[in-house]
Amino acid sequence: MLTISPISAFDDNYIWMFHAPDSRDVFVVDPGDPTPVEEALKHYKLSLAGILITHHHVDHTGGINVLTKGRNIPVYGPDNENIAGITHTVRDNDTIELSGCQFRIMTTPGHTLDHIAYFTESGESGNPALFCGDTLFVGGCGRLFEGTAEQMFQSLSRLAELPGNTAIYCAHEYTQANLQFAQAVEPHNQMLQKQIQQVRAFRAENLPTVPSTIEQELATNPFLRSNQPEVIQAASNRDSSSNASPVDVLRVIRAWKDNF
């Protein structure tokens, strides 16, 4: 079991920090900015034991060099020579043990070609946990900067097969904007309407809207619902060339979201 906490960075990034409840040794996920990490370590009297990286974008990797200076710690990440500081390259279905928990590596290309996610069955309160970077967001998914709609669809489909109570620790506070778009796609989704109200209340108190769960996303996230009639119809209305296949629906609504 883990204790998992967000560290806010930049305008809307989350750097996730986790550790065993009885340990002061912590790991951080995607530390784009070293300063808030160092501040959290000092404030809570914690020791940095390692770093996990999901993909090469600088807002996820920018803190590696500073955080590893003077520390002999592992840095886990994808097989990409352009990420300086990786000490342990991990690949699909590899397993690593951190804070007494087994993590499985899942390749999730789409946002970038090197994107990976880290899944453990022993997250907070004993529930499964997924550190998914920029592949899956609350109510959304990452832009297709390098990958294709087919790749993103396959990646999201793979994540959708995880247990419903899996907590999703994504790397950005994009939820309000994502749900506004989701409402445009599925205006009659009652669970989505309820979630919008909950998120509005959270953000009014400046509270994180993350994590969500796989179950919640399957019910409200249009990018996991590209086989649903209302989402298919919305894609067709947006682009008459849409062939209504789940991949093509995702392609259309992702392009729509890019300009929403």
Results as ranks from 00 to 15, higher is better:
H60C: 09
Q151T: 07
Q198P: 00
E38L: 15
G50Q: 04
I51A: 06
R91V: 04
H60G: 15
P211V: 05
F202I: 09
G142F: 10
Y169P: 00
R24P: 08
Q190H: 12
L144G: 04
E39F: 01
N178F: 11
E81N: 00
H172T: 05
Q180D: 14
G50A: 06
A171N: 13
V210L: 09
Y169S: 04
A117M: 01
R225A: 10
G100M: 06
R200G: 03
K194Q: 15
G139F: 03
V185S: 07
Q233F: 01
A184W: 02
Q151W: 08
L113K: 00
T3E: 12
V28S: 11
T220I: 15
N221G: 09
N189F: 10
F153N: 06
L113H: 00
T108K: 03
A182P: 03
A184V: 04
M191A: 13
G110R: 04
F137C: 12
A171C: 14
K257W: 14
T87M: 12
T61E: 00
A129H: 09
A149I: 11
I53A: 02
A177Q: 13
V75K: 04
F153C: 02
K69C: 09
F153D: 03
I53L: 07
N127Y: 08
T35L: 14
T108E: 04
N65A: 15
T148L: 05
R158H: 11
N178E: 13
R225Y: 06
K69A: 15
I51Q: 05
N165W: 01
E173L: 12
N13C: 14
R71M: 07
G110S: 11
P163Y: 08
E121Y: 09
L156W: 03
